[in-house]
């Protein structure tokens, strides 16, 4: 019981931290990372609810399968979101919000 509680509360705190960052930061990369931290928290809660101490019965496979599905979906969402963020920066003239203007390296010199 106490193990489940510790893992669940850790997942909950991760979720809260991610949610806070998602709202106050405007840079897309920070938002993508925040969503990832949030999803990690949710996965932790789900796996923790399926936890059963050793020898007290079988594990509950359904949450495990759901988390496995969720991880794969979150990986593909992250990849697509990163590409979209890069694309926004390439096609827009101004730099992304939440970023200092003067320290910016011109686009051509990077590529």
């Amino acid at each position: 019981m106490i193990t489940t509680l510790i893992y669940s509360l850790t997942g909950l705190i991760l979720f809260g931290m991610g949610f806070f960052t998602l709202i106050i930061h405007s840079h897309p990369l920070r938002k993508i990372l925040a969503v990832n931290v949030m999803s990690t928290g949710v996965f932790l809660i789900l796996v923790a609810t399926a936890y059963i101490p050793l020898g007290e019965g079988e594990i509950d496979p359904v949450p495990h399968a759901m988390v496995l599905t969720g991880i794969v979906v979150s990986v593909s969402v992250t990849a697509l979101a990163l590409i979209l963020a890069c694309r926004i920066q390439e096609t827009s003239n101004s730099s992304l919000p939440g970023r200092k203007q003067q320290g910016e390296v011109p686009e051509e010199s990077i590529r």
Binding site: T4, A50, Y51, I52, G57, E58, D60, P61, V62
Partner: peptide, 10 residues
Amino acid sequence: GSKPVLTGAV
């Protein structure tokens, strides 16, 4: 305390 419902079915 979590009482897995679907474990038995699986």
